[in-house]
Simulated assay, not measured.
Amino acid sequence: MVNKTEQSTPPAGRFARLRSTLRLFYHSPSPKAQRFQFAVLIVDLAIIAFFVVTPLLRDNPAFLWIDYSIAGLLLLDFGARALASTDILRWLRQLPVIIDIFILLTLLAPTLFFNLGFLRILRLWTLSRSANIWRPLKKHGLGGYQDTIQAVINLLVFLFIVTGFVYTAFANRSDGIAGYVDALYFTVATVTTTGFGDITLPGTWGKLASIVIMIIGISLFVRLAQSIFRPNKVHFPCPQCGLLKHDPDAVHCKACGHILNIPDPGHD
């Protein structure tokens, strides 16, 4: 006879325990969870580095093997993060998750999405929206630099997306763009409005693309300058109106006037 106490745990119970364990690993501030989150972050940064140099490695015989291996890693991470969420359907509707799904599709079908591969760098943007990257920074008192770091990431992502677009759409068709480095050189020169004129995009569409690149690039540079030179804000929700950001020495909420009690990290 089978002892009831020795019966196996029902599948539903094992599944719930798996989700609970993954939730702890991905969202808990415990030392063990933070080590796991740091390892995931390192893998993510290595994958992003691969995305940046992809145009230079595309002709390598091992490229597809690396591509599919990264697809497997991201698929595993994507499934684990889905199980770690409290509401999977709500989680799937978030913009960073939708972008990650698209990136995963470009990895699983690199031939079909060949001309859209440069959008994989958006993985860096979605990573910057994850709490896992900011939790250790805030723990070490660097949370005040979050706006500056995000502004730098936004600028870098824009530069590499535009570089990939220019390389894909205009390589060997415009004056001077014969490779990826030429496309990057043109992008930086256009974004900074230096405009040496030695490399230009042909035709009306090329001029329109250059105009859009300059306008968005200048906006991102201004945003970066503001985050560097303006006083840092602290994240402290107002109990009255919910405003999240205040000056470090604020006594009253600038939106509703409610008295604030912002903790000073410099004092115990």
Rank of each mutant, 00 (worst) to 15 (best):
T5A: 15
V234Q: 01
F158C: 07
F170T: 04
L208Q: 13
I215K: 07
V157Y: 04
E6K: 10
D175W: 12
F158K: 06
Y180C: 07
N261S: 06
D175L: 13
T192P: 08
V152A: 13
L104C: 07
A84Y: 04
I218M: 12
L22S: 05
F170N: 01
A189S: 12
K207L: 09
P29I: 09
D67I: 07
I47D: 01
S69Q: 10
A16S: 11
I149T: 04
I70T: 04
L74E: 01
I133E: 00
D147M: 11
I259D: 08
Y167V: 01
L260S: 03
I262A: 00
S85G: 02
R123W: 05
I228G: 05
N172L: 15
F160K: 00
A39L: 11
L124E: 01
I259H: 11
P202E: 04
T54R: 03
V181D: 07
D77F: 06
T194P: 03
A49W: 00
Q146M: 15
A183C: 12
W91D: 14
N154K: 12
R223G: 10
G13M: 06
A82Q: 12
L156E: 06
L155S: 03
Y180K: 11
N154Q: 13
D87Y: 07
S20P: 05
T200E: 10
D67Y: 11
T9W: 01
L108G: 05
